[in-house]
C-alpha cells in the first residue's frame, strides 16, 4: 500500500485515505462551444498514459477532502512529489537533482 503525502494536510498517509482522479493539468476549456468536435474529443478522451513520470490528480477523500496533483512514476509507482491543485507541474530535473 502506497503512502501519499497530502500537500494540504502536510502529512504522509496510507493510500486507503485517497482516491485517484485521473490525469492532471487538463483544464476544462473556458468556452467549450468554441471547440471543434476533434478538440472536444481530445479534451474528453485522449490521455497521455506514459510509461514513466505521470502528472495525475488525487483526492484526500477520507481526509481533508481536497484534490491535489502528484508526479508518480508509473513503472515503479514511486511518488516524486505532490502539489496543490492549480499549481504548475514541477520541474522534474530539479526534483531529481535534489535527491
Amino acid at each position: 500500500m502506497l503512502l501519499i503525502h497530502c500537500p494540504y494536510c502536510d502529512d504522509t498517509l496510507p493510500e486507503l485515505e485517497f482516491a485517484y482522479a485521473g490525469e492532471a493539468h487538463i483544464a476544462r476549456p473556458a468556452d467549450p462551444s468554441k471547440l471543434s468536435d476533434e478538440e472536444w474529443r481530445d479534451f474528453l478522451f485522449i490521455r497521455s498514459n506514459p510509461r514513466g513520470l505521470h502528472a495525475e490528480r488525487w483526492r484526500h477523500i477520507n481526509g481533508c477532502g481536497r484534490f491535489f496533483n502528484a508526479l508518480r512514476d508509473t513503472v515503479s509507482d514511486r511518488f516524486l512529489t505532490t502539489y496543490p491543485a492549480g499549481h504548475p507541474r514541477p520541474d522534474v530535473t530539479k526534483l531529481e537533482a535534489a535527491e
Binding site: 477523500i61 477532502g65 484534490f67
Partner: peptide, 11 residues
Amino acid sequence: LNMMEDYLQTE
C-alpha cells in the same frame, strides 16, 4: 458530491 467538489475545487 465528489463530482461537485472536483469542479468546485479544481475548475
